[in-house]
Write a protein that binds this DNA or RNA. Structure first.
Lengths: 241, 241
DNA sequence: CGGCATCCGGGAAGATACTG
DNA sequence: CAGTATCTTCCCGGATGCCG
């Protein structure tokens, strides 16, 4: 207790194990390669979150590990902690500008791994994950050809607004839906199943997902997304030494 | 020895710690997120390598960890082990087709991390790393506007051929240089310094790098690459909740 | 309750030595 | 050269408790 300063210094000096490699990838692994680190960044990708939010979003992540990751990420300049002004006066964690630029890392890894034979899309998923997966999977050929605002509301009252135009998809958190053409309400896993699995109607019938507004817009929106085909592991690559 | 089967089964059953998360990114971390795994994939990215090659390319990686990573990567379908036909009869490790598709993961992470204030490009680097960094950094605006074949030879007789045209850059390992306009010879770190640091002339004067063939081509080639600017960590992102 | 420290058990990483 | 065996160290994850 008396020796607060020394303790802090030890913490900061205590650097992650290095790879001793000039390659940018190796340095990236020093920054984001520790267990949970990249997933914490993922959860911050759509705006600031509180300590407890992160804990509940990332099941299996214990408090002490979260504390340590946030310290490391902050020291690296990826995350910043901020105190919201009164009366909220809560502390939140947010990405720095450079931290937000890590989204392509998350997307590229996710797109590649979705082709893994071992990938199970049935597992639980966070709201941010699906929103990011929409961003990730939007790029492909099948462009909407229509404009729309879709709302998504989780069980615990978090709301996301997806603005769709003929060639862009923008996602952000909102407090209220103002202009949504269609609103989907339900746990993230249900939305995932509606987009990538059994489809909207099946999920509604199971009582997992609720729709407000245009069914046509919602259906056409959900049809935009598709998981990439599984990789064929047997094929050998020709022509490489 | 008698119980080979049981041992194999244990090995395969022994699964990496999971995240229990349907997000593709989380699954990607289960596949490539363990320490050293992605760097092993990187070293295989330009063709098969032997166990000992990998050990010497990745300083600090011990044999038992390498063994275990290769097993895990093989079980995941990222890596395949192959016995070269006699008289070579050596065992090599190579990526599966899907494994080769992980290159964007390496590139994206590397490009992002190169902007880190903590990134030190002076550290040792492997030959494959630089070749991949050329591929990674080629995309930007400054297109060559000329065609050329550049050769690179490491200290230990490994040779890479870089084919440059007005809008593509192709790298592959070769046994001999047949048609190179310019050949650079020296340790990987020297080539890195020539491209991203002090430049060709300085490295030649230090006796670290040797040039054969067209100096003009070599100079123009090396001028194509540049590290991205460091990130500004202080700036706050506006407009996010 | 949010944030953080401490203690502990299990397991992964690292170094070294050893074997075919 | 290609791994295996063993030992030590340290990280991860869970539980608990302190303090604002």
């Amino acid at each position: 207790m008396l020796d607060m300063t020394t303790m802090k210094l030890e913490k900061i000096t205590e650097r992650a194990r290095r790879y001793d490699d000039a390659c940018g990838t190796a340095h990236g692994l020093e920054l984001l390669g520790e267990r949970w680190a990249l997933l914490i960044v993922r959860e911050l990708m759509l705006g600031p979150r509180r300590f407890g939010d992160l804990r509940s979003d990332l099941r299996g992540l214990s408090a002490n590990v979260l504390t340590q990751r946030l310290e490391t990420l902050e020291a690296a300049g990826v995350v910043r902690r901020r105190k919201l002004p009164p009366p909220a006066s809560v502390q939140v964690y947010e990405l720095t500008e450079w931290g937000y630029e890590a989204e392509p890392v998350i997307q590229t890894l996710g797109r590649w791994a979705a082709r893994s034979p071992g990938h199970d899309p049935q597992l639980p998923i966070s709201a941010v994950s699906i929103m990011l997966s929409f961003r990730t999977m939007f790029a492909p050929d099948r462009r909407p050809g229509f404009d729309a605002i879709i709302g998504y509301q989780t069980g615990d009252e978090r709301r996301f607004r997806i603005a769709l135009s003929s060639d862009t998809l923008m996602v952000r958190r909102v407090e209220t839906f103002e202009d949504a053409d269609a609103i989907l309400i339900g746990p993230p896993q249900a939305l995932a199943a509606a987009a990538y699995g059994p489809g909207l109607q099946a999920l509604e019938e199971q009582g997992m997902l609720r729709l407000q507004g245009s069914r046509d817009i919602a259906t056409r929106f959900l049809a935009l997304f598709e998981l990439p085909p599984k990789a064929d592991i047997e094929t050998r690559v020709p022509g490489l030494t």
